[in-house]
Design a protein around this nucleic acid. Structure first.
Length: 469
DNA sequence: TCATTTTTTTC
DNA sequence: AAAAAAATG
C-alpha cells in the first residue's frame, strides 16, 4: 500500500500516455506534487534507433503538453538512469518513485538495482504492469513452463481477464515545460512526418479509424501490402502512447456491439498477442536480440557479404517486392508486415546473412522497433525462434509478389523505375523478354539491378545450411 | 503423352 | 512455403 507523500516522481519509459497508466495514476493519487521524468538512458539498456528516436522526440513533446493540462511537469534527462533519477529526487524532494515495468534483461537489471538503493535510502518505490496484456511470469503451460508455441499461449491468454484500462489522472493545468532541446532533427525526419500523427491522441485516433473503417477487411486484407488494412498502431504501441489493454478492450467491445466482426476481432487480437508472446520470450530466454532461441542455430555459418547487405538495405536486390519494402522502410519508417517477412527471408535464407544484421537495420529504421517484437520476429523468420517459421519455409519473392501484389501496385509505388513493366513481369524483370524491357525503359544492371542472388541455388544453400545443424 | 491437380518432401 | 514427385483425366 502506498503512503501519502508530498512529492513523487513517475519515471516514464515506454508508457508515454495519460490513460491506462497505473504508475502515473498512483503517483497522482499518492502525492501532492508529481513530476514526470523521462531519461534518455545511456548504459546497458538498448537505446531507440534513429527513426524511433525521432518519434520519441515528438511523442515527448506531445506528452509534455498533455501532462501540463493535468498539472504535471515533464522533465527530461540524459545519462545513466540511476544518476538521473537521483538528481531528480534531489531537485524535487520526492519521497516516492513510480514506474511501469519493463522486461528486457538489461532493463530489469537497471530497474532492480535502482529499486534496491531507493529502498535503502528510504524512498518508496512502486512498479506496475502496464505495457503488456499479461506479464511474462503470469502465464505458463500446464507443466508450469514458459510457452514456446504461440497457439496454446494465445488460447490461454484468451481465457484470462485482461485488466480494464484505467482513467487519466485529474489535475489542474500548469504551464507546459519545454522539452530539453537536446535533439537535432535529422534532415530525413521531415519526410516521415506526413505518414503519422504522433502522441496519445494520435494513437487513439489510429485505433478508432482502424476499428471503424478497416477491421472488417483485416482478416483477408492484412496480407496485401498495397491495401491499407493494417492497424498502423505499432509505433504507438512501441512508445506506449496506447496500451495493448486499451486496444484489447476496444476491439472486444466492438465484437460485442457487432457480432459479425467477432472473427475479425479475434484475428486482430491474435496478432496483437504475438507482441505479448515475444515479451514472454524476452523475459524467459537469454538475450533474444543476440542469442538464438533454438541453441543449434548458433552453429550456422553465415556469409560475410557486405555488398549484398548494402544492396538489401538500400532496396537494390533486383527483387521488386523486396526492394519496394526496403524503400518503404527508408521513406516511411515502417514496412507492411508481409513484406517484412519477405525481406527478412531473403536476407537470412537466400543471402544467408546473419539475421542480427537485419534486426539491427530494422532497429535503426523502424519507428516501431521494439525490444521484444523486433528480435522475436527476426528469429521467427530466420528459423531460430520458438514456434518459428520452419527451416524449409523460404519465401520466393516472385511467387509472393504475384500472390499478394498481383496488380503490382505496391511494387510500382516504391520501385518507380520498373513501373511501366506489365503485371506479368513486374515481379520478375530479370525474366522479362528484351522487347518488354525495352518498351518499359528498363535496362537491367543500369536502371534496375540484376538479382544479387539466384533464388533456386540460394534456396538449396539455405536448406543445406539448416541440414548441417 | 501432356497439362493440371494433389501429395509429398524438405533440418 | 515452395518445389518436386505422383496422380489424375
Amino acid at each position: 500500500m502506498t503512503t501519502r507523500t508530498a512529492a513523487a516522481i513517475v519515471w516514464l519509459r515506454n508508457d508515454l500516455r495519460l490513460a491506462d497508466n497505473p504508475a502515473l495514476l498512483a503517483a497522482v493519487k499518492s502525492a501532492d506534487s508529481v513530476t514526470a521524468l523521462y531519461i534518455h538512458e545511456t548504459g546497458p539498456v538498448r537505446a531507440p534507433g534513429a527513426a524511433a528516436r525521432w518519434w520519441l522526440h515528438h511523442s515527448l513533446a506531445d506528452l509534455g503538453n498533455a501532462l501540463a493540462e493535468r498539472g504535471i511537469p515533464l522533465v527530461t534527462a540524459s545519462g545513466d538512469a540511476p544518476q538521473c533519477l537521483a538528481d531528480a529526487i534531489a531537485s524535487t524532494g520526492a519521497s516516492a518513485v513510480f514506474w511501469n515495468r519493463r522486461y528486457a534483461p538489461q532493463e530489469r537489471a537497471v530497474d532492480a538495482g535502482i529499486k534496491d538503493w531507493l529502498k535503502r535510502d528510504g524512498v518508496q518505490v512502486v512498479s506496475f504492469a502496464a505495457n503488456v496484456l499479461i506479464e511474462p511470469w503470469d502465464i505458463a503451460t500446464g507443466q508450469g513452463k514458459p510457452y514456446s508455441v504461440f497457439t496454446p499461449f494465445w488460447r490461454a491468454l484468451k481465457q484470462r481477464d485482461i485488466p480494464t484500462p484505467l482513467p487519466r489522472p485529474e489535475g489542474d493545468r500548469i504551464a507546459p515545460t519545454a522539452i530539453a532541446a537536446d535533439y537535432q532533427q535529422p534532415a530525413w525526419a521531415s519526410k516521415l512526418a506526413p505518414y503519422w500523427r504522433i502522441g496519445e491522441s494520435g494513437a487513439r485516433e489510429a485505433l478508432a479509424d482502424f476499428l471503424d473503417e478497416r477491421l472488417e477487411d483485416y482478416k483477408l486484407g492484412r496480407d496485401f501490402p498495397a491495401a491499407t488494412v493494417t492497424s498502423r498502431l505499432s509505433p504507438h504501441l512501441r512508445f506506449g502512447e496506447i496500451s495493448p489493454r486499451q486496444v484489447w478492450h476496444a476491439a472486444m467491445a466492438l465484437a460485442q456491439r457487432e457480432p459479425g466482426l467477432a472473427e475479425a476481432v479475434d484475428k486482430f487480437l491474435s496478432e496483437l498477442s504475438w507482441r505479448d508472446f515475444n515479451y514472454h520470450q524476452l523475459y524467459h530466454r537469454d538475450d533474444i536480440s543476440t542469442v538464438p532461441m533454438q541453441a543449434k542455430y548458433a552453429g550456422i555459418k553465415w556469409r560475410h557479404a557486405p555488398d549484398d547487405l548494402k544492396a538489401w538495405q538500400t532496396g537494390q536486390t533486383g527483387f521488386p517486392i523486396v526492394d519496394a519494402g526496403m524503400r518503404e522502410l527508408w521513406e516511411t519508417g515502417t514496412m507492411h508486415n508481409r513484406v517484412r517477412m519477405l525481406v527478412a527471408s531473403l536476407l537470412a535464407k537466400n543471402l544467408l546473412i546473419d539475421w542480427r544484421l537485419g534486426e539491427h537495420w530494422f532497429w535503426d529504421c523502424l519507428l516501431d522497433a521494439d525490444v521484444a517484437s523486433n528480435p522475436g520476429n527476426w528469429q521467427w523468420v530466420a528459423g531460430s525462434g520458438l514456434d518459428a517459421s520452419p527451416y524449409f519455409r523460404i519465401f520466393n519473392p516472385v511467387v509472393q509478389g504475384e500472390r499478394f501484389d498481383a496488380s503490382g501496385d505496391y511494387v510500382r509505388q516504391w520501385v518507380p523505375e520498373i513501373a511501366d513493366l506489365p503485371d506479368k513481369w513486374v515481379h520478375q524483370p530479370f525474366a522479362a523478354p528484351a522487347e518488354v524491357l525495352r518498351q518499359a525503359n528498363v535496362v537491367l544492371g543500369e536502371t534496375y539491378p540484376v538479382p544479387i542472388v539466384d533464388l533456386k541455388t540460394s534456396r538449396e544453400r539455405a536448406l543445406a545450411a539448416a541440414k548441417a545443424l
